[in-house]
Design a protein around this nucleic acid. Structure first.
Lengths: 203, 203
DNA sequence: ATAATACTAGACCGGTCGGTCAAGTCAAGT
DNA sequence: ACTTGACTTGACCGACCGGTCTAGTATTAT
């Protein structure tokens, strides 16, 4: 469906094609030739825009992180929504995203960041740090939400930073398990329990 | 340290070497030649014992699952311990395991099953199912523990199966995040919150 | 002693990997 | 008209991939 719109510029076409393929498979499993074929681009053009496969992956992470932050994450964490409702929205968004991706590829791709984090963390420290930064930004969305909930009395005081991190870990864990079962419904089933997570303030 | 003990039989040496390398890096990133070199074994010997790299990975999963079930998982889920204490033991065990592995390799390897699940699930359905079975066994340890805690009144009635699955997902999520931060302490920091997870019985 | 079997040795295979490069095409700037 | 520089083309590179194969060496059974 990407090569159906050849009017978008070459660099973007490479980027989005690679993103889709890295997401659906893995970094190591997808070759540059394969990306070029799918994006209807020649090898030389590829290396005109990206110095290496690694740099392409970095760009893919940035690109996806942006789409993520301004896409469904921004919607789920809508400041106009009551804080705890945002958590439910986040779970729902994750679910529908995976369902959509499953319908296209036939298999659950999981979370691109989680996938890459596990694949690359022990091999590339810079990429690991980059993925960690993405996670930290996501964690912050949770933290702000929790802070608000504590402020307005919906939730009792707690260590919001730690709890936010725990919630992110739980979300990633759910997606990991759902991918292993190849069943997005796991997200719907386990997701709501994210609200039960709590880490008290240490003193 | 494996090639220091060349008296163990060749097959086992290949298996354990591969396990260590798959765990510390990834399936795709580790080549057979590399495994043979590390295990001080020739290619021909390798293919005498294992028909393919894929079958080796399958054997590695079985081997690790066994060590896991009869190793620290069995200790953590000691039936003589009070149910909720077992959860704390499990977190501790995961932490110390990762610390030990980090000290050896310099980087957190994470959970072999989680790593492989994310890397292989979209590529090999049989391996995915195998990893899923390992997760299901682990989940069952949690479930039994929760059932006991409910039975003796320590915990209020709940959907123990769903909650057990949620706990496993949380554990995997924590390890994923810790690996991304390359900091095992994340496990200690977030781990105890596993006890706050709850999924009510639906009716 | 001999035959059969289990295992080891390592050269070799086609294919693919990430990456390079020389030779272009083409549109804009002067 | 001509130059410049962005972009494209596709052949090509050495390295390495998983896997095969033949020749050999131990070990064991007879």
């Amino acid at each position: 469906m990407l090569n159906m719109t050849p009017d978008i510029d070459t660099r973007t076409r490479i980027l989005l094609t690679a993103r889709e393929m890295f997401h659906g498979r893995s970094y190591a499993d997808v070759g540059i030739q394969e990306i070029c074929d799918a994006a209807k681009v020649q090898k030389g053009s590829f290396y005109h825009f990206f110095p290496s496969k690694r740099e392409l992956a970095m760009a893919v992470i940035d690109n996806m992180a942006e789409d993520w932050a301004y896409g469904f994450v921004a919607e789920a964490f809508d400041p106009d929504l009551p804080p705890v409702v945002r958590l439910d929205y986040m779970i729902d968004a994750a679910y529908y995203w995976q369902v959509a991706a499953s319908d296209m590829e036939g298999r659950m791709p999981g979370c691109l960041f989680g996938n890459l984090a596990l694949e690359m963390s022990t091999r590339d420290d810079v990429m690991r740090a980059k993925l960690n930064a993405v996670f930290n930004k996501a964690m912050d969305k949770f933290r702000v939400t929790l802070d608000e909930a504590v402020q307005n009395g919906t939730l009792a005081a707690m260590d919001t930073e730690a709890t936010a991190t725990a919630m992110l870990a739980y979300l990633e864990g759910i997606i990991l398990l759902a991918k292993t079962r190849n069943d997005p419904k796991v997200i719907l089933h386990l997701g709501p329990a994210i609200k039960t997570l709590r880490i008290e303030l240490s003193h």
